[in-house]
Amino acid sequence: MTTVLEIENLKETLNRGDIKFPLESYVWSGYNFDNNIKMHWHSDVELVRFIKGDFSYTIKMQEYKIKDRAIAFIPANVLHSFILPSYSSESAVVFNPKMLPFSEYDESERALSKALIKGYTSLYNPITPDDPDFEYLDEAIDYIVTNSKDNSICSRLRIKSKLIEIFAILQSKGYFSEEEAIADTSSMQREDRVKHLLKYISENYPKNITVNETAEKLGFTTEYFCRFFKKNFGESFIEYLNDYRMDRAAQALLLTNLPVARIGENCGYQNSGYFFRVFKKKFGCTPNQFRTLKSSKN
């Protein structure tokens, strides 16, 4: 099981697990600051187990609020984001759906493969404890997270069987459709614009980018861009950009040995004193303290 501060990027291209078993698990538990996992998407399927805390997540531009326990299913290639509050607990399983079918699979596996890989999804709402299948699903995901690093054939077969059972239950609840849903053109255009915007931010956040420059690059007027951003992200462009830079800095502190000042520069902060102040305001400690405390915990 991997316990990490997982700060997602937008279009993820991470290799989950290994080529023989492309599955990874993540755990968020006990940190004394919020983790705002920005809007992103990936070609993998994700199962999220909310354990303790008041959570908020968005999928296909629809927000869901969770109090304590719940399970969320995130299909492949769908925009989503999470807000994980301080001192909360959450775990997730992320995997390549192509791992599920056997080499000679039957009609039921073919239907499941089509639903997961091509994204034939009908429902996105979370599953809560009042659902009769909740406890089984909760225990199954917990088993997968706990045993995801066991490389034995026996363990991997059990994990695979758990995943198939989970999706059989989701199928019975109407989460998947046999054919691709009729596209909502306006919704698709909105998602495409958001994806394009996220891509631009991820490629340019180390630079001194401005609202006017970003709006112009994306073909928007500044006024329309500000309204569009606020409506879709719930905050201003500058607020989002600063938070995004902080997340990138936190990730670099945990995953690299670069000097703190260099990390600040790489994240768009040329003034190290200002970088320290902004970082401490968000995380409640200096970058050096963050690196020491979180690295020792992990």
Rank of each mutant, 00 (worst) to 15 (best):
E180W: 12
A181F: 08
A183N: 06
A183C: 13
D184R: 06
T185Q: 14
S187R: 10
S187C: 03
M188G: 04
Q189P: 06
Q189F: 12
E191D: 14
E191A: 14
R193C: 13
V194Q: 09
V194L: 11
K195P: 09
H196W: 07
H196E: 15
L198Q: 07
I201H: 03
I201Y: 06
I201T: 00
S202V: 08
Y205I: 07
Y205G: 05
P206A: 05
K207C: 09
N208G: 07
I209R: 01
N212M: 08
E213P: 02
E213I: 04
T214Q: 06
T214F: 06
T214R: 08
E216M: 10
K217M: 11
K217H: 15
T222W: 04
T222D: 12
F225G: 07
F225V: 04
C226R: 13
F228W: 15
F228S: 02
F228Q: 02
F229D: 06
F229G: 05
K230C: 08
K231P: 01
N232H: 14
S236L: 07
F237H: 03
F237L: 12
I238T: 15
E239R: 00
Y240F: 15
Y240H: 12
N242E: 15
N242A: 07
D243W: 01
Y244R: 00
Y244S: 01
D247F: 01
R248C: 00
R248N: 05
A250F: 00
Q251A: 00
A252Q: 12
L254Y: 01
L255C: 04
L255H: 08
L255R: 09
L258N: 14
L258M: 15
V260G: 12
V260C: 14
A261K: 13
R262D: 11
R262N: 11
I263M: 07
G264R: 03
N266L: 12
C267W: 02
G268R: 02
G268T: 00
S272K: 15
S272G: 07
G273Y: 09
G273W: 11
F275V: 05
V278M: 09
F279C: 08
K280W: 05
K282F: 01
F283M: 06
F283V: 04
F283D: 02
G284I: 10
T286W: 05
T286Y: 08
Q289I: 10
F290H: 01
R291Y: 00
R291P: 06
